[in-house]
């Protein structure tokens, strides 16, 4: 083997390692409607990838497939180079795919701490291991510490309905990070937020991308250009264009693809 090809192989391996998530030829049909057609993309470590597109472009279908909420008609998902098939969002969470949703996926009647640990409540053994009770003290302590790390000093024992949109989204994001995921999906996280709240949110996200690569799904191009390192635009279920934000095209050029 000559030097040239071994370098090529090394580079290829390196780029494989850097790709934390790769979607290959994902298609999805709902009856006769084709929501996604041969969509391929990847997410590298330490980056925020934007997936943009208008309503009906297939963004939410794509995110549901990655989250395991629905299955693709064809195509493969590779997580750290290994093929994965998720039967449910729970399996995706356990595999290290965290998520933050549009309406924050919070339950109004529960406290902030309970929402923080929704579906992942820590337990402690009682009566010599006979039963397992929810460990509220641990929930309060850990959720309040995690929020403090991101600069939010909040009373985690208050009902979530008493907090502002920005604070609620902060909970959703801290919650996603708390469980040390391999990557985080951000499904239109800014849609219910004020300008000020979006600024704070983006600062947190940019700070955290070293640890958690993210996929930002939305339809506001300005948001995406501020936040993302790379953007792909979906249109009618296909990848229309892929742009490197630093050296790529201008906003006006990009908008023609949407």
């Amino acid at each position: 083997m000559d030097n040239f090809s071994s370098i090529q192989i090394l580079e290829k391996e390196k780029s494989l390692q850097e790709k934390i998530l790769e979607c290959l030829n994902i298609s999805k049909n709902f009856g006769r409607i084709q929501a996604l057609n041969n969509v391929s993309f990847y997410l590298k470590k330490k980056e925020i990838l934007g997936i943009m597109g208008d309503n009906g472009a297939g963004k939410s279908t794509l995110i549901k497939i990655i989250r395991g909420a629905i299955k693709p008609t064809s195509g493969k998902i590779l997580l750290e180079g290994k093929e994965v098939i998720f039967e449910s969002p729970r399996e995706a969470t356990n595999a290290g795919i965290g998520a933050v949703y549009q309406e924050s996926a919070l339950v109004e009647h529960l406290t902030m701490a309970e929402n923080f640990f929704l579906g992942q409540e820590p337990t402690r053994s009682v009566f010599g291991g006979l039963f397992k009770f929810v460990d509220y003290k641990k929930m309060w302590k850990e959720s309040s510490e995690s929020l403090k790390e991101l600069g939010f000093d909040l009373d985690v024992r208050e009902l979530i309905s008493n907090f502002s949109g920005g604070q609620r989204q902060a909970v959703a994001i801290t919650r996603a990070m708390h469980f040390k995921p391999k990557l985080i999906l951000l499904d239109e996280p800014t849609s219910a937020l004020s300008e000020k709240a979006i600024d704070i949110l983006f600062e947190i996200l940019k700070k955290s991308k070293e640890l958690y690569p993210m996929i930002f799904v939305g339809h506001d191009l300005d948001d995406a250009l501020r936040l993302c390192d790379r953007i792909i635009v979906l249109k009618h279920g296909e990848v229309e264009v892929e742009v490197d934000v630093e050296k790529g095209m201008s906003r006006d050029q990009l908008i023609t693809y949407m």
Binding site: R67, A69, S88, P89, R90, T93, N94, A99, Y101, E103, S104, A105, L106, V107, E108, H109, L110, E114, L118, G119, Q120
Partner: peptide, 14 residues
Amino acid sequence: YATGGNERAARLMG
């Protein structure tokens, strides 16, 4: 409580 409070959120959180 989570199921009844916001079924979609509960399902999304596994």
